[in-house]
């Protein structure tokens, strides 16, 4: 039963967990290690799996806690790693000029989001990129639903202002 549950509900969210860890750590190898550890931890706590209503949020919370431990243990400088990850891989398009222009715009958006305080950035990424509900985000980050809503509003407002100031407009 547990194996079935694990394969049907935990394995499909591996990618999401990996991306979440990558966003928190900014390093591919560390994100992979943390996600692997999170999967093993979830499996080790399979007795609890049956009791939970939202397995995905629980898995994300475990991933988050492990990533935060990693940050603390290594005195991670998240800013450094984010700088490293701030350049997006180039997009391949037929028109090189259009591709360059698009890359520039995407990099500006990327920079605007990465410049947000961590709690705003995490919430915005979980909502706008991963499509999590307010409740799921609250459970993943271990915060109140109202806090999620307030911080999401502030995050979007801040990104909007940054993009307006830089005059980043549609492609």
């Amino acid at each position: 039963m547990s194996l079935e549950l694990f394969l049907s509900q935990v394995v499909p969210v591996r990618t999401k967990l990996f991306r979440f860890a990558y966003r928190l750590l900014g390093d591919e190898e560390d994100a992979k290690d943390i996600t692997q550890d999170a999967l093993m931890k979830v499996w080790a706590m399979q007795g609890k799996m049956m009791e939970l209503q939202n397995l995905e949020a629980w898995c994300m919370r475990i991933t988050r806690n492990l990533a935060l431990d990693k940050i603390k243990s290594r005195k991670y400088r998240i800013a450094d790693t984010l700088d490293k990850a701030s350049e997006l891989p180039a997009l391949h398009q037929r028109n090189p000029h259009a591709a360059t222009e698009r890359n520039e715009v995407m990099n500006k958006v990327h920079a605007a989001i990465n410049a947000l305080p961590e709690k705003y950035r995490n919430i915005m990424q979980l909502r706008d990129m991963d499509g999590l509900s307010y409740q799921e985000i609250a459970e993943a980050l271990d915060i109140d639903v109202n806090e999620v809503k307030v911080n999401l509003h502030r995050a979007r407002k801040s990104v909007r202002e940054k993009l307006q100031n830089q005059q980043v407009y549609g492609l």
């Binding site: 694990f6 997006l88 995407m106 958006v109 990327h110 993009l163 407009y169 492609l171």
Partner: peptide, 27 residues
Amino acid sequence: QEAAPLFQYFGEETQFPAEPEWDMSFL
């Protein structure tokens, strides 16, 4: 126009590294 780049960014998959191979032998 002002919102277009943000939503296009959300749709980009290239901002993440390729998913690694997972070791599921622990199962």
